[in-house]
Nucleic acid binder design. Structure first.
Lengths: 402, 402
DNA sequence: GCTATTTCGTCATGGCAGTTTACAAATTAG
DNA sequence: CTAATTTGTAAACTGCCATGACGAAATAGC
């Protein structure tokens, strides 16, 4: 059972799956899970009115979910309202958990999140992975994964799946890293290197960051661009609450949008790509700094100290970002833009020129550019939560494995 | 009953509609319609295996569709295979029809398409609409609509809906033309001006063109960009077989993607937008021609005659398009690009420089750039077919009105 | 304090949808 | 001409949700 968790589900009239009563039941179980998960403790009656089924139907659905341990009965509510109080239902803090992992340039991280969305265990290993071959890195990651699983186990949690965020392009199979320039990896099938005991998904770090923003952000809209940078500049395109991945899985390559078509050559073959102006390397060079460890921290520190070269470099990066984003906004018409990853930390110095450029170039009301609250935690949390979402999306599938 | 036909259906776990048995039935009726519509005459058994239901279930579904006149029994098949031959089922050529309409800069057009996809009636009125106020234009259009409906009526067709393609931005309500520069319209509620007897959808001409490409194109993929030009340059973003509309409905504004960020001022407030290089007006100017009637024909004629100024102007437009499309391809990773509308007629002179630019700037296998077979007919056909698709998507809804 | 009202959760009943099983009809293979 | 195969349909069955009724547990009004 190693199916990709977040496969784009075929939707609309084209979907080939027959519509049978069992499917209906499964979808309604999912609806109950989502309602309870999203709106806190809820009585059966409240769930029924939320999802449009009758109380009787919800009763049987909830019974089943309680039997399989996905939902817990907290006890009677104490409301000021008239009538018999309902019995509060909540998603269980035990049972299946989502294991999220991140392969960063300078670290490895793993965490376990329960169905309630709480992080229940974590493990980190610092140290660069640049240029290391996949096998030993994944081996270390696997060790962290096992440690986290072991740590969560006494609390009654078992891994329902593993999702790995990587700084690079991932094929649509959700397993293969096609290219990760920072790691110098190419066509690595992580599915073959990682333990096969549970469902695995691999995805781009920007994508998981975007999903984290969608699921955990305070008032993130269902349509936005999540821009993230770790040397390369990637964007997660969230459209109507789900990721736009592209045919090959390479959508969101904001870094190679042409900004100055006659500008400097880029590794991608083009000229004047955004990455040549707002990529980490380019900014460091423009700021007169040498590449090294913790480059983002260095930039942020210098900028905070008022270093004029760094400030100018970031200002220009913001302008270039603004130009590239103008194109993206015209194409996608999202509700907003969120700066995540390394960009979040540098936002104070990027935002002014970025917003100037955007408002200069786009008509109509300005689209809000906000900064991720999650910062560097985004991808890891997004990965773990993607597993949790998969459980909420089809609780019946998990119940079979429990 | 004037609900928008092609509203983005909420999908996935978030959709609020309860999953009830009647809904199941409706979806399965739709599945049968789609199977029969897409794969020609089919026996009940063939439909059953296609959609994954049992023959018995399909039998009752088909019975219902035959009773409501949406499907016809053609009679026994004559196969070389062993076993009792099936009875061929086909979508009916009578009953509900889709009325498509187009408000062009230089013409109005209306057509009626039956469930089989055949155009059964059409009407055109030539003459510019530039600068005319909405009311008289829509009045003329309404007259054409009524004529087409009357023409189709003796064949047993009745209008299941009206879809109108306009050269401009349309709000997500599917009724309001927010801005149509060529017509000089702004915030026009077509829903108030058009007859209210049947469901109405209004959409961008590029969007309907893209849908036509998706539904009628020979081997069009489910993920592509359909680029179209009528003064403005618009693109339909088809992602996984459905349109990406954006929050406000303005997605696909390729014309205002920055190509040379320091280039000439654009009406949108920006600088160096694609439209400044590849828009109709810009190309005419670059070619040393004055604007007038049938501008595209003029350009194509001169180019075919070998006029060097025109050729150069088109070559440069192709280059600019290539730069803007590079950005779009990096963001969306579609399977291909289709040139439609006015661009289709000019493709021979645009394509070389466009493809050069694309292959220069993008790594990996070149994405195919193809030319629409439908040409200027695309938007009209797409509009009419969108109504037909709505019927196929929910035959039960139509049966109630029959 | 007591009764009426309101709301909750559950149960029994019923309707509806698709499955299973069986069978007659219509064709080909030999 | 018989056996094998496939189609379409009917009858019985299972599963799921809706309906309506009921007891339980709270509040509101007197």
């Amino acid at each position: 059972m190693t199916a990709p968790l977040h496969e784009a589900r075929p939707t609309g009239p084209g979907r080939a799956l027959p519509d049978t009563q069992q499917g209906m039941r499964r979808r309604n179980l999912a609806r109950v899970m989502h309602a309870v998960s999203a709106e806190g403790p809820l009585s059966r009656a409240a769930v029924a009115s939320r999802i449009g089924l009758t109380r009787a139907a919800v009763s049987t659905l909830v019974d089943e979910l309680i039997r399989t341990g996905l939902i817990e009965e907290l006890g009677p509510e104490r409301p000021g309202r008239v009538g018999r109080p309902g019995s509060a239902l909540a998603v269980s803090g035990r049972g299946p958990s989502g294991i999220g992992a991140e392969i960063g340039v300078d670290h490895l991280a793993v965490c376990a999140v329960d169905l309630r969305g709480e992080v229940r265990a974590r493990a980190v290993r610092h140290g660069t992975n640049r240029g290391r071959s996949p096998a030993p890195v994944v081996e270390e990651l696997t060790a962290l994964v096992r440690r986290v699983i072991a740590e969560a186990e006494p609390a009654g949690l078992w891994p329902a799946g593993l999702a790995v965020a990587v700084p690079g392009l991932v094929a649509r199979d959700g397993r293969t890293v096609v290219r990760a320039p920072n790691l110098d990896w190419q066509d690595v099938d992580l599915g073959a290197l990682l333990p096969g005991e549970f469902p695995l998904t691999v995805d781009n770090e920007a994508n998981f960051g975007g999903l984290a923003e969608l699921w955990l952000g305070a008032d993130t809209p269902r349509d936005f661009l999540h821009v993230s940078a770790e040397i390369g500049i990637g964007a997660a395109l969230v459209v109507d609450g789900s990721l736009l991945r592209g045919t090959r899985g390479f959508a969101g390559e904001l870094g190679h949008v042409p900004v100055h078509p006659d500008g400097p050559r880029c590794v991608c073959g083009g000229r004047g790509c955004l990455e040549q102006y707002a990529g980490e390397e380019a900014v460091l060079r423009a700021a007169g700094l040498a590449p090294g460890e913790d480059r983002v921290g260095l930039l942020a520190g210098r900028a905070a100290d008022g270093d004029p070269d760094v400030r100018r470099a970031l200002r220009e990066a913001g302008t270039a970002l603004g130009i590239a984003l103008t194109g993206a906004l015209n194409l996608l018409d999202p509700e907003g833009v969120v700066l995540g990853g390394a960009l979040a930390g540098l936002a104070p110095w990027l935002l002014p020129s970025l917003e100037t450029e955007l408002s200069r170039r786009t008509a109509g009301p300005a689209r809000p550019v906000s900064v991720s609250r999650l910062g560097p935690e985004g991808p890891l949390l997004g990965a773990a939560h993607s597993v949790v979402r998969a459980v909420l999306d089809d609780p019946a599938a998990v119940a079979e494995r429990a």
